[in-house]
Amino acid sequence: MKSLQGLGVALITPFNEDGTIDFPSLENLVNYNVDNGVDYLVVLGTTAETATLNSDEKKQVIEVIKKSNNKRLPLVLGIGGNNTVEVTKQIIDSDLEDFAAVLSVSPYYNKPTQEGIYQHFKTIAIQSPVPIIVYNVPGRTGSNMEAATTLRLANEVSNIIAIKEASPNYLQSTDIIKDKPFDFLVISGDDEFALPMTLAGGSGVISVLGQGMPEMVSKMIHFGQNKQVEESYKIHYDLHSLFRLIFKEGNPAGIKALLSVKGICKPYTRLPLIPASKSLISSIEKELEKISVLS
Rank of each mutant, 00 (worst) to 15 (best):
S143P: 01
N82T: 07
G78V: 08
V61A: 08
K67T: 15
Y237F: 14
D18N: 15
P168M: 07
K122Q: 14
G254A: 06
E17V: 09
P252G: 07
H240S: 11
N36V: 00
P272L: 02
L259W: 00
P107Y: 03
P168K: 08
G139Q: 03
V30E: 08
G210L: 09
S283C: 06
I117K: 13
S279D: 15
P74Y: 02
K178G: 11
I246H: 06
N226I: 02
Q119I: 12
K262F: 01
V229T: 13
G81L: 04
G6D: 11
E86G: 11
V130I: 13
E86Q: 15
N251I: 08
G202H: 06
K227R: 12
T88W: 01
P107D: 01
D183H: 14
I91C: 06
L258M: 14
Y268H: 12
K227S: 13
E57W: 00
I284M: 09
E115L: 12
I79H: 10
Q211K: 02
A253F: 06
A101Y: 01
D39V: 01
A166Q: 05
T13V: 14
K256F: 05
T88I: 02
V217E: 03
A166L: 05
S218T: 05
I264E: 00
L242Y: 09
E63W: 05
E86N: 15
L153S: 04
F223D: 12
S188Q: 14
P74C: 05
F121R: 02
T50R: 06
G212Y: 05
G45V: 12
S94R: 09
G202P: 03
L153P: 04
Q60F: 00
N159Y: 11
I91S: 07
S295H: 11
K180C: 09
R140K: 07
Y268N: 06
E231H: 11
L4H: 10
I79S: 10
P181Y: 06
Y268V: 03
N69T: 08
D179S: 12
T50G: 03
F184A: 09
V76I: 14
N36P: 00
V208F: 12
M197H: 09
N110A: 11
L103A: 04
K122I: 12
S128M: 02
T141W: 01
N82A: 11
I79P: 09
Y268A: 02
S104W: 03
L171I: 13
A148Y: 02
Q114F: 01
G116F: 02
D18A: 08
V61I: 14
Q172W: 03
I291C: 00
K164N: 13
K164I: 13
M145L: 05
Y268I: 02
S55K: 15
S104T: 14
F23W: 06
F182D: 13
T150S: 06
S292C: 07
T50Q: 09
I124Y: 04
G81A: 07
V87N: 08
M197E: 15
S260N: 10
A166S: 10
Q228F: 00
I246F: 05
G8Q: 10
Y108D: 00
S55D: 14
V105S: 07
Q172A: 13
L271C: 07
G189I: 13
N251V: 13
G8V: 10
T150R: 03
S282C: 00
Y108R: 10
V43C: 09
L7E: 14
S3C: 08
L11Y: 12
A10W: 04
I91N: 09
V229K: 12
